[in-house]
């Protein structure tokens, strides 16, 4: 159920995106309000990641509105886009950690480049704080190749948290992880929301993740949101495509 009394901080309206002949998003509408975790649920290849990449300006929509924190993303110039990106944390599906850097350097990198004149002690404190928040302080001097998949995801999230974003965008946070690690990542997403007061869009095809982390679910099928609401509201339906998604996910 959407909150109509407040202005959404992410407003997606009639959004279209295609790649060549392939229409991926076909008129998507979604409002996200401050402080809520919205899960975008759908099968692989339905354009979920495309949607959040448009929100950070990595891709541009063919038509429609992608408005974040009151600004239309596609209309921002380079410096405005940079300012907006500082307020958004983006956790990549494959973590996208910098291979040639240690965990410490991975976390320092965005910080020292975006917050000038920090002392060594301030940088160390910021790095250690976010690593503690994701429970991986002991990995500080390791390189990404020495980390497990779950640890990489956590470090990826820590790297986004170091800039204290208002909005978090998680791209398949539990993909490729074992069930126990998935639960830990789900808990971490909820902790981040509580501790850092973030608003989040979580892209996933994992129903357990959706149920555990989403205040609201938006179901993306064939390029449009077919249902939005709480987990129970979305899946309390006789619509065959949604039921089959639900059944298949739990069989998996």
């Amino acid at each position: 159920m959407e909150n109509s009394s407040k202005e959404p901080i992410i407003k997606i309206s009639d959004l279209y995106k295609s790649f060549g002949d392939l229409d991926v998003l076909k008129g998507v509408n979604l409002n996200v309000y401050r402080g809520e975790n919205v899960v975008v649920l759908g099968r692989s290849g339905t354009g979920k990641s495309v949607l959040i990449k448009i929100l950070v300006g990595l891709l541009t929509q063919d038509s429609g509105i992608a408005n974040v924190l009151g600004r239309e993303v596609s209309e921002l110039n380079e410096s405005e886009l940079r300012d907006l990106r500082l307020k958004i944390g983006f956790s990549f599906q494959n973590s996208a950690l910098y291979d040639s850097m240690t965990v410490r350097e991975n976390l320092e990198f965005p910080l020292v480049r975006n917050v000038p004149n920090l002392t060594r002690a301030e940088i160390d404190e910021a790095v250690e704080t976010v690593l503690e928040a994701v429970g991986l302080l002991q990995t500080i001097n390791q390189v990404p190749s020495e980390l497990s998949g779950g640890q990489r995801k956590r470090i990826g999230i820590a790297r986004t948290l170091i800039l204290k974003p208002e909005i978090m965008l998680y791209d398949e946070p539990t993909a490729g992880l074992d069930p126990i690690t998935c639960l830990e990542i789900n808990e971490l997403i909820n902790e981040v929301k509580e501790k850092y007061k973030t608003t989040a869009i979580i892209i996933t095809h994992d129903l357990t993740c959706a149920k555990a982390t989403g205040d609201r679910i938006a179901m993306l099928l064939d390029g449009i949101f077919v249902r939005q609401g709480t987990f129970e509201e979305v899946f309390k339906t006789e619509e065959e495509r949604i039921k089959s998604f639900y059944d298949y996910n739990f069989i998996q």
């Binding site: 996208a96 910098y98 790297r159 800039l163």
Partner: peptide, 17 residues
């Protein structure tokens, strides 16, 4: 090339670098 396909370049962009 490896940084591009593993989204490390995108990660820099979204970190405002």
């Amino acid at each position: 090339g490896s940084m591009r396909v593993t989204e490390q370049i995108d990660a820099m962009e979204v970190s405002a670098i």
